[in-house]
Computed example of a mutant assay.
Amino acid sequence: MSVTIDIEGECWTMVSCYAPEVGCDDDKLSFWRDLDSVVQGIEDGERIVIAGDINGHVGWRGVGYEGVHGGHGIGNVNQEGIAILDFATAYEMKLVNTKFTKIPNHLVTYNSGGHQSLIDYIMVQKKFVKEAIDCKTLPLEQVTGQHRTLVMKMKIRERRKRWEKVSRKVRWWKLKDRNIREEFQAEMDRILDGVAFEDEEGQKDIFRIAAERDKKSKDIGQVVTVKSEDGRILMDEEDI
């Protein structure tokens, strides 16, 4: 099951999953295919959180998988755990509940008949794993008779505002100063080979010409297009 929500202007896709128990090989293959399909269907740029009972032991250190294993697990790795580590590696995700140093009671997610293990996981993309500030089980709160509640705490960074570039305003009011006006007129005379500035009409001409020059400096002077063999303008990057 997956759900997409908006948090602080960003899309988060939360995936809840349950993997078949050890020994159900055909069901396991089907589970990983389905999970692959779900993750591949998520839009680029969205944040992904995968959580659930994935029924695998990733070991206490995750030797060879240091990029996805946080180094704080329980017991030895098994074949199902390797499948979890391979999946996390393929999608550049990290097992958050192996990231933090915890007492065993806060690492164990499954407890039955005196047998304790870590088979429930929360995975997030590596580039966002720093925002996870804690992850542990709550021993006194159990989802079922054997599984403990696994929680993750994240500190979501506020998105930086993108400042748009604003064109500098033309400071027309400065022309009210006689010295600046005369300097401006001299420069315009040099450029325009002499335009009257003394009378009112001449001043209007100067303002008009200056405004047109300013506008031309901002407008696109040339548009370049790419056309196909049949003369059609190509607009999509893939076609170009």
Score class of each variant (00 low, 15 high):
E10C: 07
E10W: 02
C11N: 10
C11K: 12
C11R: 12
C11E: 10
W12F: 15
W12P: 11
T13H: 10
T13Q: 09
T13R: 11
T13K: 11
M14Y: 14
M14T: 08
M14F: 15
M14L: 15
M14I: 15
M14A: 15
V15T: 14
S16M: 02
S16Q: 13
S16D: 09
S16I: 00
C17Y: 00
C17T: 09
Y18M: 06
Y18D: 05
Y18Q: 13
Y18E: 09
Y18N: 14
A19K: 08
P20T: 00
P20Q: 04
P20G: 03
E21R: 14
E21A: 14
E21H: 15
E21I: 04
V22F: 14
V22T: 14
V22A: 15
V22C: 15
C24Q: 13
C24D: 12
C24P: 09
D25V: 08
D25W: 04
D25K: 13
D26S: 11
D26W: 02
D26H: 04
D26Q: 13
D26P: 07
D26F: 04
D27T: 01
D27E: 14
D27V: 07
D27C: 06
D27Q: 14
K28F: 03
K28Q: 09
K28L: 05
L29D: 15
L29M: 08
L29F: 05
L29P: 06
L29V: 11
S30Y: 08
S30W: 05
S30F: 05
F31Y: 06
F31G: 06
F31I: 00
W32Y: 14
W32L: 03
W32H: 07
W32Q: 04
R33E: 09
R33D: 10
D34K: 14
D34F: 00
D34A: 14
D34V: 03
D34E: 12
L35E: 00
L35R: 08
L35H: 03
L35Q: 07
D36Y: 00
D36A: 00
S37P: 04
S37C: 00
S37N: 12
V38Q: 12
V38N: 04
V38G: 01
V38P: 09
V38I: 13
V39Y: 05
V39P: 09
V39E: 03
Q40L: 11
Q40C: 12
Q40G: 15
Q40N: 14
Q40T: 02
G41N: 12
G41T: 02
G41F: 01
I42M: 05
E43M: 06
E43T: 08
E43G: 10
E43S: 12
E43R: 12
E43Y: 08
D44T: 05
D44L: 06
D44V: 00
D44I: 01
D44G: 08
G45T: 02
G45D: 01
E46C: 13
E46S: 13
E46H: 12
E46K: 12
E46I: 00
E46N: 13
E46M: 09
R47C: 10
R47Q: 12
R47Y: 12
R47P: 11
R47G: 11
I48Q: 04
I50H: 10
I50F: 00
A51W: 03
A51Y: 03
A51R: 05
G52W: 02
G52D: 06
G52Q: 07
G52P: 10
D53S: 06
D53P: 11
I54A: 03
I54P: 08
